Amino acid sequence: MRVTVNGAPTRSTVPVRLLLSDFLRDVLGLTGTHVGCGQGPCGSCTVLADGDTVRSCLMLAVQADGMEIETIEGVAAADGTPHRIQEAFREHHALQCGFCTPGIVMATVGLLRRTPCPSAAERAELMEGHLCRCTGYRNIDEALAALSGAEPRGEH
């Protein structure tokens, strides 16, 4: 299969049942994509595939053939300067253990590309697909609101 990951073209022969998450982590060594539940609802494994958010634990690697995949490792600038989304998460203390953070950041990248100023409802919809076991939802929404120049949703 041929796939571009974080701007780097890659060619690899993979087992037909290898999950995209396992390909990214085990074959390419991109361990920033976390696998929490292995069934999709937690959102920790979220990556962008041709610009769309996907759960990499639910997608076979061979399904990504010919696609452009973006992972959390490709979000910061090449010199290591954090992306504005990563900065907003830091500034608003929107992470605790950090396990869910890569998936939420990737979903946020996708959302802000489609909708530069998401509404409170759109931000809430984004979070419906992600589980944060450290209860960081309020701070995450504050970071998302800051990115879009909006007010946080208030009580969660």
Rank of each mutant, 00 (worst) to 15 (best):
M1R: 10
R2A: 12
T4L: 02
V5W: 02
N6C: 05
T10C: 14
T10G: 06
T13F: 11
V16R: 13
R17P: 02
L18N: 06
L19R: 14
L20T: 02
L20Y: 03
S21Y: 03
D22L: 11
D22V: 10
F23V: 08
F23A: 04
R25Y: 06
D26Y: 13
D26M: 13
L28S: 06
G32Q: 04
G32F: 03
H34Q: 14
H34R: 15
C37S: 11
G38Y: 01
G40N: 11
G40D: 12
P41M: 10
C42A: 00
S44V: 08
S44N: 07
S44T: 12
C45D: 06
C45G: 04
V47H: 02
L48N: 05
A49V: 15
D50E: 12
G51I: 06
V54W: 03
L58N: 08
L60Q: 03
V62F: 11
Q63I: 05
G66D: 14
M67Y: 06
E68Q: 15
E68N: 14
I69P: 01
E70T: 10
E73I: 08
G74Y: 09
G74V: 08
A77T: 10
A77V: 10
A77G: 12
A78Y: 06
G80R: 11
T81D: 10
H83N: 14
R84N: 09
I85L: 00
Q86I: 04
E87K: 12
A88I: 05
F89Y: 07
R90A: 15
H92L: 05
H93F: 13
H93V: 07
H93W: 13
F99C: 08
C100V: 14
C100A: 13
C100M: 13
T101P: 00
P102L: 01
G103W: 02
V105S: 04
A107Y: 06
A107S: 14
T108S: 04
L111V: 01
L111T: 00
P116H: 07
P116T: 05
C117V: 15
S119F: 14
A120G: 15
A121D: 15
E122W: 02
L126D: 00
L126T: 01
L126G: 06
H130T: 05
C132E: 02
R133Y: 01
C134F: 12
G136P: 03
Y137E: 05
A146W: 03
A146R: 03
L147E: 07
G149L: 07
E151T: 15
G154C: 06
H156V: 13
H156G: 11
